[in-house]
Amino acid sequence: MTTGQHDPTTEGPTPDGEDLPALLLRLLAETGRDQKELADATGITYSRLNNWLTRTRGTSRIDAEDLRALAVALQRWGAKVTPRQVFAANGRPTPGPAVEERERKLIDIYRSLPVQGQRALIQHAELLRGTMALGK
């Protein structure tokens, strides 16, 4: 896992080999900010953020909203980063925007199902998310 020098002309989401901790550490250095400031700006606890950056805790289960918050905070500080780059560095596709009408429809369907149906819907959604993450 190499971080290498950042080349803004590089095609693709992040320089080759740059995972989420490497991306965040590079952008923090570029913006002159520290982990505490990033934690405060995103609402992510310092200990969680520090665990991700020091690789003492895995990053595969980071909530999508936390990834978006990281990108937004860094953008506010002048970093040249997009949510797509943050998600890609985390090895995940960028989720589409939430549309209230679709969310409401899905919640209505979920609530109309018996418990077994709710569990099946959740299981199906998780499988779909996994398939989409693999680019299938």
Rank of each mutant, 00 (worst) to 15 (best):
R26C: 03
R33F: 02
M1I: 05
R55L: 08
D16V: 10
Q116T: 10
H124E: 11
K136V: 15
G32R: 06
M1P: 04
K36V: 14
H124Y: 11
Q123C: 07
G96V: 12
G12H: 09
K80A: 15
G78I: 00
T94K: 04
I109V: 15
V72F: 10
E103Q: 12
G17E: 05
Q118L: 03
L121P: 07
G78W: 02
G4P: 00
I107K: 15
I62H: 02
R129Y: 12
L121V: 07
L74D: 00
R55W: 01
V81I: 13
F87A: 00
R92S: 11
H6I: 09
E30V: 07
T42V: 02
R92Y: 02
T54Q: 07
L38P: 01
M1V: 07
L121I: 10
N50W: 13
D108S: 13
T31R: 04
I109N: 11
L74S: 01
P21L: 04
S112R: 06
V115N: 09
G135A: 01
E100L: 10
L113D: 09
P8R: 10
I122F: 00
L20K: 00
E126K: 13
A22H: 08
S60A: 15
P15S: 02
D66Y: 01
R102K: 13
R48W: 08
L28P: 03
